[in-house]
Design a protein around this nucleic acid. Sequence first.
DNA 1: TAACTGTATTAGTTATTATAGTACACATCA
DNA 2: TGATGTGTACTATAATAACTAATACAGTTA
Lengths: 129, 129
Amino acid sequence: MLDLDIRSRQPIYEQLVEKMKELIIHEVWKPHEQLPSVRQLAKEVTINPNTIQKAYRELEHQGYIYSIPGKGSFVAPQSPSVSQEKAATIKQQMLKLLCEALYLGIGKEELLSLVETAEQLVKGAKTND
Amino acid sequence: MLDLDIRSRQPIYEQLVEKMKELIIHEVWKPHEQLPSVRQLAKEVTINPNTIQKAYRELEHQGYIYSIPGKGSFVAPQSPSVSQEKAATIKQQMLKLLCEALYLGIGKEELLSLVETAEQLVKGAKTND
DNA sequence: TAACTGTATTAGTTATTATAGTACACATCA
DNA sequence: TGATGTGTACTATAATAACTAATACAGTTA
Protein backbone atom coordinates (compact mmCIF):
# COMPACT_ATOMS: atom_id res chain seq x y z
CA MET A 1 0.00 0.00 0.00
CA LEU A 2 2.75 2.42 0.97
CA ASP A 3 5.61 1.32 -1.18
CA LEU A 4 8.60 3.48 -0.40
CA ASP A 5 11.84 3.75 -2.32
CA ILE A 6 14.67 4.13 0.16
CA ARG A 7 17.28 4.80 -2.50
CA SER A 8 15.21 7.49 -4.18
CA ARG A 9 16.54 11.04 -4.14
CA GLN A 10 13.10 12.07 -2.95
CA PRO A 11 13.07 12.10 0.86
CA ILE A 12 11.16 9.28 2.54
CA TYR A 13 8.91 11.62 4.49
CA GLU A 14 7.92 13.38 1.27
CA GLN A 15 7.05 10.09 -0.35
CA LEU A 16 4.93 9.28 2.67
CA VAL A 17 3.11 12.61 2.49
CA GLU A 18 2.30 12.14 -1.20
CA LYS A 19 1.13 8.56 -0.91
CA MET A 20 -1.04 9.26 2.10
CA LYS A 21 -2.54 12.37 0.51
CA GLU A 22 -3.59 10.24 -2.44
CA LEU A 23 -5.14 7.63 -0.17
CA ILE A 24 -7.10 10.37 1.59
CA ILE A 25 -8.12 12.19 -1.59
CA HIS A 26 -9.39 9.01 -3.19
CA GLU A 27 -11.09 8.11 0.09
CA VAL A 28 -9.33 4.82 0.57
CA TRP A 29 -8.99 6.28 4.01
CA LYS A 30 -12.27 7.86 5.10
CA PRO A 31 -12.80 10.96 7.28
CA HIS A 32 -12.21 10.37 11.01
CA GLU A 33 -10.65 6.97 10.27
CA GLN A 34 -7.71 6.26 12.55
CA LEU A 35 -4.28 6.06 10.95
CA PRO A 36 -1.60 3.62 12.03
CA SER A 37 0.35 4.99 14.96
CA VAL A 38 3.74 6.56 14.49
CA ARG A 39 5.57 3.67 16.13
CA GLN A 40 3.50 0.95 14.49
CA LEU A 41 3.95 2.33 10.98
CA ALA A 42 7.64 2.84 11.64
CA LYS A 43 7.94 -0.82 12.57
CA GLU A 44 6.00 -1.95 9.49
CA VAL A 45 8.13 -0.08 6.98
CA THR A 46 11.27 -0.42 9.10
CA ILE A 47 12.22 3.22 9.26
CA ASN A 48 12.70 5.61 12.12
CA PRO A 49 9.58 6.80 14.00
CA ASN A 50 10.82 10.37 13.70
CA THR A 51 10.54 10.16 9.93
CA ILE A 52 6.93 9.02 10.20
CA GLN A 53 6.17 11.76 12.66
CA LYS A 54 7.66 14.32 10.31
CA ALA A 55 5.30 13.13 7.58
CA TYR A 56 2.31 13.23 9.95
CA ARG A 57 3.26 16.73 11.08
CA GLU A 58 3.35 17.87 7.48
CA LEU A 59 0.01 16.23 6.68
CA GLU A 60 -1.52 17.89 9.73
CA HIS A 61 -0.09 21.23 8.68
CA GLN A 62 -1.65 20.80 5.25
CA GLY A 63 -4.98 19.97 6.84
CA TYR A 64 -5.27 16.37 5.70
CA ILE A 65 -5.13 14.76 9.13
CA TYR A 66 -5.57 15.76 12.76
CA SER A 67 -3.85 14.34 15.82
CA ILE A 68 -4.97 13.94 19.39
CA PRO A 69 -2.15 13.36 21.89
CA GLY A 70 -2.68 10.10 23.69
CA LYS A 71 -5.33 8.87 21.25
CA GLY A 72 -3.96 8.84 17.74
CA SER A 73 -4.01 10.46 14.30
CA PHE A 74 -7.11 10.62 12.13
CA VAL A 75 -8.20 11.59 8.64
CA ALA A 76 -9.54 15.15 8.64
CA PRO A 77 -12.87 15.92 7.00
CA GLN A 78 -12.70 18.76 4.47
CA SER A 79 -13.88 22.01 5.97
CA PRO A 80 -14.60 24.90 3.60
CA SER A 81 -12.31 27.20 5.57
CA VAL A 82 -9.28 25.01 4.97
CA SER A 83 -10.12 24.64 1.29
CA GLN A 84 -10.44 28.39 0.88
CA GLU A 85 -6.88 28.92 2.04
CA LYS A 86 -5.37 26.37 -0.30
CA ALA A 87 -7.57 27.02 -3.32
CA ALA A 88 -5.64 30.05 -4.52
CA THR A 89 -2.32 28.24 -4.39
CA ILE A 90 -3.67 25.21 -6.18
CA LYS A 91 -5.22 27.31 -8.92
CA GLN A 92 -1.95 29.16 -9.37
CA GLN A 93 -0.05 25.89 -9.79
CA MET A 94 -2.70 24.64 -12.13
CA LEU A 95 -2.53 27.67 -14.38
CA LYS A 96 1.24 27.40 -14.66
CA LEU A 97 1.01 23.72 -15.49
CA LEU A 98 -1.75 24.32 -18.02
CA CYS A 99 0.31 26.93 -19.85
CA GLU A 100 3.23 24.53 -19.99
CA ALA A 101 0.98 21.77 -21.29
CA LEU A 102 -0.46 23.94 -24.03
CA TYR A 103 3.01 25.09 -25.03
CA LEU A 104 4.16 21.49 -25.31
CA GLY A 105 1.41 20.83 -27.76
CA ILE A 106 -1.19 19.17 -25.58
CA GLY A 107 -4.56 20.05 -27.02
CA LYS A 108 -7.20 22.06 -25.20
CA GLU A 109 -9.70 19.22 -25.68
CA GLU A 110 -7.29 16.80 -24.07
CA LEU A 111 -6.93 19.06 -21.05
CA LEU A 112 -10.67 19.39 -20.73
CA SER A 113 -11.07 15.64 -20.79
CA LEU A 114 -8.44 15.36 -18.06
CA VAL A 115 -10.76 17.35 -15.84
CA GLU A 116 -13.49 14.84 -16.57
CA THR A 117 -11.16 11.96 -15.77
CA ALA A 118 -10.18 13.52 -12.46
CA GLU A 119 -13.79 14.10 -11.57
CA GLN A 120 -14.62 10.47 -12.25
CA LEU A 121 -11.71 9.35 -10.09
CA VAL A 122 -12.69 11.49 -7.13
CA LYS A 123 -16.42 11.04 -7.44
CA GLY A 124 -15.98 7.34 -8.02
CA ALA A 125 -14.17 7.03 -4.74
CA LYS A 126 -16.83 8.91 -2.81
CA THR A 127 -19.67 6.73 -4.04
CA ASN A 128 -17.90 3.61 -2.83
CA ASP A 129 -19.37 4.06 0.64
CA MET B 1 12.37 40.89 -15.54
CA LEU B 2 14.12 38.16 -13.61
CA ASP B 3 13.53 39.13 -10.02
CA LEU B 4 15.28 36.62 -7.80
CA ASP B 5 14.94 36.15 -4.08
CA ILE B 6 18.36 35.32 -2.66
CA ARG B 7 17.05 34.55 0.82
CA SER B 8 14.40 32.17 -0.45
CA ARG B 9 14.71 28.50 0.50
CA GLN B 10 14.11 27.76 -3.18
CA PRO B 11 17.49 27.49 -4.92
CA ILE B 12 18.45 30.37 -7.18
CA TYR B 13 18.93 28.15 -10.20
CA GLU B 14 15.43 26.73 -9.78
CA GLN B 15 13.97 30.22 -9.63
CA LEU B 16 15.88 31.02 -12.81
CA VAL B 17 14.57 27.91 -14.57
CA GLU B 18 10.98 28.71 -13.68
CA LYS B 19 11.12 32.38 -14.63
CA MET B 20 12.85 31.68 -17.92
CA LYS B 21 10.46 28.86 -18.78
CA GLU B 22 7.59 31.28 -18.33
CA LEU B 23 9.27 33.86 -20.54
CA ILE B 24 9.72 31.21 -23.23
CA ILE B 25 6.25 29.74 -22.89
CA HIS B 26 4.61 33.13 -23.14
CA GLU B 27 6.92 33.93 -26.03
CA VAL B 28 8.47 37.00 -24.50
CA TRP B 29 11.55 35.27 -25.76
CA LYS B 30 10.98 33.95 -29.26
CA PRO B 31 12.40 30.77 -30.87
CA HIS B 32 16.07 31.02 -31.89
CA GLU B 33 16.42 34.29 -29.99
CA GLN B 34 19.78 34.53 -28.25
CA LEU B 35 19.76 34.54 -24.48
CA PRO B 36 22.09 36.65 -22.38
CA SER B 37 25.42 34.91 -21.91
CA VAL B 38 26.24 33.05 -18.75
CA ARG B 39 28.72 35.65 -17.58
CA GLN B 40 26.68 38.65 -18.63
CA LEU B 41 23.56 37.47 -16.81
CA ALA B 42 25.66 36.55 -13.81
CA LYS B 43 27.01 40.09 -13.68
CA GLU B 44 23.54 41.59 -14.05
CA VAL B 45 22.00 39.71 -11.16
CA THR B 46 25.31 39.57 -9.24
CA ILE B 47 25.48 35.84 -8.67
CA ASN B 48 27.96 33.16 -9.69
CA PRO B 49 28.19 32.24 -13.39
CA ASN B 50 28.03 28.57 -12.43
CA THR B 51 24.57 29.07 -10.99
CA ILE B 52 23.43 30.55 -14.29
CA GLN B 53 25.04 27.73 -16.18
CA LYS B 54 23.30 25.19 -13.99
CA ALA B 55 19.99 26.80 -14.85
CA TYR B 56 20.86 26.84 -18.56
CA ARG B 57 21.90 23.19 -18.42
CA GLU B 58 18.58 22.28 -16.83
CA LEU B 59 16.64 24.31 -19.42
CA GLU B 60 18.56 22.60 -22.19
CA HIS B 61 17.86 19.20 -20.67
CA GLN B 62 14.16 20.03 -20.55
CA GLY B 63 14.29 21.09 -24.18
CA TYR B 64 13.54 24.76 -23.74
CA ILE B 65 16.85 26.09 -24.99
CA TYR B 66 19.85 24.89 -26.96
CA SER B 67 23.47 25.93 -26.58
CA ILE B 68 26.33 26.17 -29.03
CA PRO B 69 29.79 26.32 -27.43
CA GLY B 70 31.55 29.48 -28.43
CA LYS B 71 28.41 31.07 -29.81
CA GLY B 72 25.75 31.25 -27.16
CA SER B 73 22.44 29.90 -25.89
CA PHE B 74 19.20 30.20 -27.79
CA VAL B 75 15.49 29.59 -27.35
CA ALA B 76 14.54 26.19 -28.75
CA PRO B 77 11.58 25.88 -31.11
CA GLN B 78 9.05 23.27 -30.02
CA SER B 79 9.52 20.03 -31.92
CA PRO B 80 6.78 17.42 -31.70
CA SER B 81 9.27 14.75 -30.63
CA VAL B 82 10.26 16.67 -27.54
CA SER B 83 6.68 17.38 -26.65
CA GLN B 84 5.76 13.72 -26.98
CA GLU B 85 8.28 12.77 -24.33
CA LYS B 86 7.12 15.35 -21.82
CA ALA B 87 3.40 15.13 -22.48
CA ALA B 88 2.87 11.98 -20.42
CA THR B 89 4.65 13.44 -17.42
CA ILE B 90 2.76 16.70 -17.61
CA LYS B 91 -0.57 14.93 -17.87
CA GLN B 92 0.30 12.80 -14.87
CA GLN B 93 1.13 15.86 -12.80
CA MET B 94 -2.02 17.54 -14.03
CA LEU B 95 -4.26 14.66 -13.05
CA LYS B 96 -2.81 14.54 -9.54
CA LEU B 97 -3.28 18.28 -9.14
CA LEU B 98 -6.82 18.12 -10.51
CA CYS B 99 -7.80 15.43 -8.01
CA GLU B 100 -6.39 17.51 -5.20
CA ALA B 101 -8.25 20.58 -6.42
CA LEU B 102 -11.56 18.75 -6.62
CA TYR B 103 -11.02 17.30 -3.17
CA LEU B 104 -10.38 20.77 -1.77
CA GLY B 105 -13.74 21.89 -3.07
CA ILE B 106 -12.76 23.69 -6.26
CA GLY B 107 -15.64 23.25 -8.68
CA LYS B 108 -15.39 21.42 -11.98
CA GLU B 109 -16.63 24.51 -13.80
CA GLU B 110 -13.89 26.57 -12.23
CA LEU B 111 -11.27 24.11 -13.41
CA LEU B 112 -12.68 24.13 -16.92
CA SER B 113 -12.52 27.90 -16.99
CA LEU B 114 -8.90 27.74 -15.87
CA VAL B 115 -8.17 25.86 -19.07
CA GLU B 116 -9.76 28.69 -21.02
CA THR B 117 -7.71 31.25 -19.12
CA ALA B 118 -4.50 29.40 -19.83
CA GLU B 119 -5.36 29.13 -23.50
CA GLN B 120 -5.94 32.86 -23.71
CA LEU B 121 -2.61 33.53 -22.01
CA VAL B 122 -0.62 31.32 -24.36
CA LYS B 123 -2.51 32.20 -27.52
CA GLY B 124 -2.37 35.86 -26.62
CA ALA B 125 1.40 35.70 -26.48
CA LYS B 126 1.72 33.98 -29.84
CA THR B 127 -0.37 36.55 -31.66
CA ASN B 128 1.86 39.35 -30.44
CA ASP B 129 4.28 38.76 -33.33
C1' DT C 1 45.50 38.11 -31.18
C1' DA C 2 41.75 39.50 -28.27
C1' DA C 3 37.44 39.12 -26.45
C1' DC C 4 33.66 36.72 -26.32
C1' DT C 5 30.99 32.21 -25.91
C1' DG C 6 29.68 27.44 -23.38
C1' DT C 7 31.65 23.74 -20.60
C1' DA C 8 34.20 20.98 -17.14
C1' DT C 9 36.53 20.23 -12.87
C1' DT C 10 37.57 20.80 -8.21
C1' DA C 11 36.79 22.47 -3.77
C1' DG C 12 34.48 24.19 0.33
C1' DT C 13 30.54 25.54 2.74
C1' DT C 14 25.92 25.05 3.97
C1' DA C 15 21.48 22.72 4.25
C1' DT C 16 18.87 18.72 4.40
C1' DT C 17 17.82 14.16 5.68
C1' DA C 18 17.53 10.13 8.39
C1' DT C 19 18.56 7.94 12.47
C1' DA C 20 19.06 7.20 17.47
C1' DG C 21 18.06 7.93 22.09
C1' DT C 22 15.52 9.95 25.67
C1' DA C 23 11.80 12.19 27.87
C1' DC C 24 7.12 14.02 28.81
C1' DA C 25 2.03 14.21 28.97
C1' DC C 26 -2.35 12.22 27.88
C1' DA C 27 -5.72 8.15 27.08
C1' DT C 28 -7.22 3.70 27.82
C1' DC C 29 -8.04 -0.48 30.10
C1' DA C 30 -7.18 -4.39 33.08
C1' DT D 1 -3.22 1.92 40.48
C1' DG D 2 -0.16 0.16 36.99
C1' DA D 3 0.88 -0.95 32.39
C1' DT D 4 0.68 0.08 27.82
C1' DG D 5 -0.07 2.74 23.78
C1' DT D 6 -0.70 7.26 21.93
C1' DG D 7 1.37 12.02 20.06
C1' DT D 8 5.05 15.26 20.83
C1' DA D 9 9.53 17.42 21.82
C1' DC D 10 14.36 17.71 22.17
C1' DT D 11 19.23 16.86 21.45
C1' DA D 12 22.84 14.76 18.98
C1' DT D 13 25.17 12.65 15.10
C1' DA D 14 26.30 10.75 10.68
C1' DA D 15 25.58 10.81 5.89
C1' DT D 16 24.15 12.83 1.90
C1' DA D 17 22.78 16.37 -1.13
C1' DA D 18 22.68 21.11 -2.57
C1' DC D 19 24.75 25.34 -3.48
C1' DT D 20 28.25 28.46 -4.48
C1' DA D 21 32.91 29.71 -5.78
C1' DA D 22 37.21 29.78 -8.36
C1' DT D 23 39.73 28.21 -12.06
C1' DA D 24 40.83 26.29 -16.39
C1' DC D 25 39.84 24.65 -21.08
C1' DA D 26 38.04 24.80 -25.86
C1' DG D 27 35.37 26.77 -29.56
C1' DT D 28 33.78 31.19 -32.24
C1' DT D 29 34.19 35.58 -34.10
C1' DA D 30 36.11 39.84 -35.62
